[in-house]
Structure formats: C-alpha cells, structure tokens
C-alpha cells in the first residue's frame, strides 16, 4: 500500500513538472559584437527577473532619405528556453515631446534560448529625433 502511494506521488510529481517544462531552444551562432557599454547610462531596468533572461546589446538609429527615423534594438536571450516578451517603441521630437502618445501598440515576440534578435521600427513622421523602447515580460491572461 505504502509502495503504491509512493509510486502515485512520484508519478504526479513527474506530471506536474512535465507540465512546466518548455523545450530548450539554445543552439549555436557566430558573431563577435560585444555588448555596447555606451548604452549602460540609457538602460533602465525595473524588472531584475527579466534582466536575468534578456540583455540589450546595442541600439542603432538612422535618418532615412525621407526624414523618417529608423530605429533598431539588438537584444539577446540569456535563457536556454523560449522567453515571451512585449515591446513598444515610443517616439520623441526634438523638444522631448512624445509623438502620438499611446497610438503605437505593444508588439509580442518570442526569443529562443541564446538567440540574438533585432527589434525594428520606423517613426510615425519626420519630426521624431529620439526613440525609447519599453520591454516587459509577456503577460498571460
């Protein structure tokens, strides 16, 4: 009887843990870019748990021929499994005023284990001079 109970307990534990497990998605990738230290003063981390899974490697922006600002943020996963997150680009003009506040919805993405991902966006108009990217873990409802 005791043995049966132990077996049942072990089986239920295995089932519980199996439910939580997502497959590992790490692999191999070449590249030599180091994490851009110049970004450090601009990086605000409010979620230390998320900072254990994601690192911002670099941020680039250039003004296109038509005056629109093209922005890119390079992030890397430090996890071995998939990590779901949301990101939102916010555009500011030369005076620091936000352009069309709340009009650009957050976007959802999944980064595989160890993967480097580039998030890109284009400013709504040519008056954008600065951009901010907000990243947060994906919320399940």
């Amino acid at each position: 009887m005791k043995q049966l109970l132990y077996t049942l307990f072990a089986a239920s534990l295995v089932l519980c843990l199996a439910g939580c497990q997502t497959p590992r998605t790490t692999g191999m990738e070449t590249g030599a870019t180091v994490v851009d230290q110049a970004l450090a003063p601009f990086l605000v981390v409010n979620d230390n748990t998320m900072a254990r899974y994601l690192v911002v490697r670099s941020a680039n922006a250039n003004v296109r021929q038509d005056g629109l600002l093209f922005a890119q943020l390079e992030i890397q996963s430090l996890a071995k499994r998939d990590y779901a997150f949301q990101y939102q680009f916010v555009w500011l003009d030369a005076t620091g005023m936000e352009l069309y506040p709340g009009k650009r919805a957050a976007q959802q993405n999944i980064i595989h284990g160890g993967e480097v991902l580039r998030l890109q966006a284009v400013s709504p108009d040519a008056s954008a001079k600065t951009f901010i990217v907000r990243i947060r873990p994906d919320i399940r409802y």
């Binding site: 949301q86 709340g102 650009r104 919805a105 957050a106 976007q107 959802q108 966006a121 399940r140 409802y141």
Partner: peptide, 23 residues
C-alpha cells in the same frame, strides 16, 4: 485596460493581431 496592451486569449484574429499587422 490600455488599448495598446497585448492580449492573447484565443487562436482567433484579435485586436492585438490587428495592431501588430498594422505596425
């Protein structure tokens, strides 16, 4: 809730998919 937040409730084509496609 904020209209710019992402929600995934079903496999249907929802508001967040709508916004993501537009962007």
């Amino acid at each position: 809730t904020r209209p710019d937040d992402v929600r995934t409730l079903t496999t249907g084509f929802g508001a967040s998919d709508f916004q993501q496609c537009t962007n």
